[in-house]
């Protein structure tokens, strides 16, 4: 079966992002960019399913500026078979991304779409669920285990109280949680091979999708700073401070 994997270009997770001083946005000048960690887990899962013989083709899709090709190439080096870039310089929000992915699904007819549960820039945690709604597919969000059996998939989900197992009929949308797998690194020969793999480029207009943002960011600011604390010398002083100064125990 065919699997579609969505990948997003985001600020590297090690970078501490700061708002611009005028509050109009986030300072992304000369910041290291990378594939969203949850998307990496999504690719890895698709590749493992292919290695098991469950999946026959993996298509990596990214939506964004031309530079997002870099993240598609990474996905190809990790084992995706071909790439699709939906190129736009507009700020695409989760609903628009879900509509674009639906349009790609209409063309590609995948049996499964695997996405990260959230991107570490916007922290929205919406796109997979929205895509599932628009396509009418079932959804297995925050997945820590994915087992395909015939025309259904059993997904173990990370939930607040522990874990939940659901059975979904295919086609289905899966969103990945951290413990689903540990992504591999791309080998140099695979990085070289990835350069020759096919990549289609299309636009939202060609897909007939309206991407105008519904939500406007009025300003961004740093969070409230915590007041500097103190170091205590020993456990006795700590207990004394907690009892008499902070009064929390």
């Amino acid at each position: 079966m065919k699997v579609l994997v969505a990948v997003k270009r985001v600020v590297d997770y090690n970078v501490k992002v700061r708002p611009k001083s005028d509050g109009t946005g986030v300072d992304l000048n000369n910041v290291k960019m990378a594939i969203n960690p949850f998307c990496e887990i999504a690719i890895e899962e698709a590749v493992r399913l292919k290695e098991k013989g469950v999946v026959t083709e993996i298509v990596a899709v990214s939506i964004g500026a031309k530079v997002s090709q870099e993240q598609i190439r990474t996905a190809l080096a990790l084992g995706a078979d071909r790439g699709i870039l939906v190129e736009t310089d507009v700020e695409v929000q989760p609903l628009a991304i879900a509509k674009l992915l639906k349009a790609v699904c209409d063309k590609e007819q995948p049996q499964m779409v695997i996405l990260g549960k959230q991107a570490i820039d916007g922290d929205n945690n919406q796109t997979g669920q929205m895509l599932a709604a628009l396509t009418g597919m079932s959804q297995g969000t925050f997945a820590s285990e994915v087992v395909v059996e015939g025309d259904s998939v059993t997904v173990t989900r990370e939930v607040d109280s522990g874990s939940q197992v659901v059975k979904l009929s295919l086609p289905a949308v899966i969103t990945t949680d951290l413990r689903l797998n540990e992504p591999r690194y791309a080998s140099l020969p695979n990085i070289m091979k990835a350069k020759k793999k096919p990549m289609d480029v299309m636009t939202p207009e060609e897909l007939g999708v309206e991407v105008t943002p519904r939500v406007t960011t009025l300003k961004v600011e740093p969070p409230a700073e915590r007041k500097a604390g103190i170091k205590v010398a020993d456990v006795a002083e700590l207990v004394e401070k907690l009892k008499n100064e902070a009064k929390v125990i």
Binding site: V215, T216, T217, L218, P222
Partner: peptide, 13 residues
């Protein structure tokens, strides 16, 4: 957003 390093004020239309 960004793991709480930035607070965004957003308006819905």
């Amino acid at each position: 957003i960004y793991a709480g390093n930035v607070i965004a004020t957003v308006q819905s239309s």
